[in-house]
Amino acid sequence: MTSVSPHVRSPKECALAAARAHDGERGALLPILHDIQAELGYVDPEVVPVLADALNLSIAEVHGVVTFYRDFRSTPPGRTTVRICRAEACQSVGAEALVEHAKAALGVGFGETTADGAVTLDEVFCLGNCALGPAVQVGDRLHGRVAPARFDALLGDAR
């Protein structure tokens, strides 16, 4: 599976549709941005002035929100996003060693995507799986007790 689903809509059309879908909801900028990211895979900087206009906000306000939250990325991610928990509970069972292993295995750092576009690696602080660490999230799916060997197996599935 190497095909990437084509974007049916431009970022601008996507932003307008998301704004329309939440019309009448108060304070809906986060759900709108989540919708856009779900469709495009990222929040294209092109949508910022579009949303500012649609929501009667300043460009600075929208830009400020997009950049405040770690979830919203301004560039497309790889086909699979892998996030490793680096919080205390996972550290107590070897998360830092897993991080080193992952970076070496993928040849990328946090926030970076492998050259083949397959995997984006990132860190996360707590996935709520603190009794079964180290915890890793592949896409939306949570994995527990991820030793380096299991990490490699998960990556094999993702690639």
């Binding site: 909801e25 986060l30 941005l33 989540h34 939250y69 770690r70 979830d71 602080f125």
Partner: peptide, 10 residues
Amino acid sequence: ITVRVGAGAY
């Protein structure tokens, strides 16, 4: 009740 989802900010 409405569910709102955060965006990765502790």
